[in-house]
Design a protein around this nucleic acid. Structure first.
Length: 257
DNA sequence: ATGACTTATCCAATAAGA
């Protein structure tokens, strides 16, 4: 199977690129984040023309996630167990069973600054994600993937000095990810198509992409058995090139079966 | 540089992103 995740930064703005990418990459299942539209307005017909079923979860201007699958899409779950709100619940997680794999598309809250209430919300949200994963893990192939908004180590940012005092790199955020992995998940580490490290996000500003000032924050966590079948994984930085890209690149993971 | 882009929305100035 070919599985993928991509923060598209508006599925409406990115639709031509998404359709081209689906045709060329031919993933079986894709987890999307920041669709920035409603569940009803998701361009499900356009992706259906390429053979994909859709499970979208969005409420408008911000956030929003989706799963696209051409290998079946069953048991759709929107939201987490005991999910916190800011102040109300936000559409940041959707799960489904696709071709025998239980897969979640997640868009973890940004956190803004460590002293901002949004940061506490981020940690609460990650705790709810852990609870949800723990309830489902152990009954077959399992994946939770998406934009985690956390750089797991200092290697995952272009310059740790540039992130002192910022979110995405704090010990509490990293411990939240470690706690998630400790349940039994493996960080499927992709290869870069260029340079020596697989960043997945580059700021739109100041030439961050051409200068490769990126971060690895889009992650693919799989149960150990599924991770053992991974034959290839890469960051498709080609999707970050050219006119009108998302600021995130897709992560593509191939498994043996 | 309190910067630099890009998005959707009360279509114009704003909030949010990371």
């Amino acid at each position: 199977m070919r599985l993928a995740t991509w923060n598209v930064n508006s599925v409406t703005a990115r639709l031509p690129r998404l359709l081209d990418w689906l045709e060329n990459t031919k993933p079986d299942v894709v987890a999307l984040q920041e669709i920035k539209t409603t569940t009803a307005a998701f361009p499900a017909d356009a992706v259906a023309a390429l053979g994909y079923e859709t499970a979208a979860h969005g409420d408008g201007r911000w956030n929003g996630v989706a799963l696209l699958s051409r290998v079946g899409l069953e048991n759709v779950t929107r939201g987490l167990v005991d999910q916190p709100g800011f102040p109300g619940p936000e559409p940041r997680a959707v799960g489904a069973t696709c071709g025998g794999v239980r897969i979640w598309s997640v868009y973890v809250p940004n956190g803004r600054e460590p002293d901002n209430p949004h940061y506490a919300y981020k940690l609460e949200w990650l705790a709810a994600l852990r609870t949800t994963v723990q309830a489902e893990l152990g009954s077959g192939p399992f994946v939770v993937t998406g934009d985690f908004n956390v750089a797991p180590t200092d290697d995952d940012v272009f310059d740790p000095a540039a992130f002192v005092g910022a979110t995405h790199v704090t010990p509490a955020e990293r411990e939240a990810l470690a706690s998630l992995r400790a349940i039994g998940l493996v960080d499927v580490f992709p290869r870069p198509l260029k340079y020596d490290y697989p960043f997945t996000y580059w700021d739109y500003r100041a030439g961050a992409f051409p200068n490769n000032k990126g971060m690895r924050i889009d992650l693919f966590y799989a149960d150990a058995a599924l991770a053992a079948t991974v034959s290839d994984a890469y960051v498709d930085r080609n999707a970050r090139k050219g006119k009108g890209p998302s600021d995130h690149a897709p992560v593509v993971v191939d498994t043996a079966d």
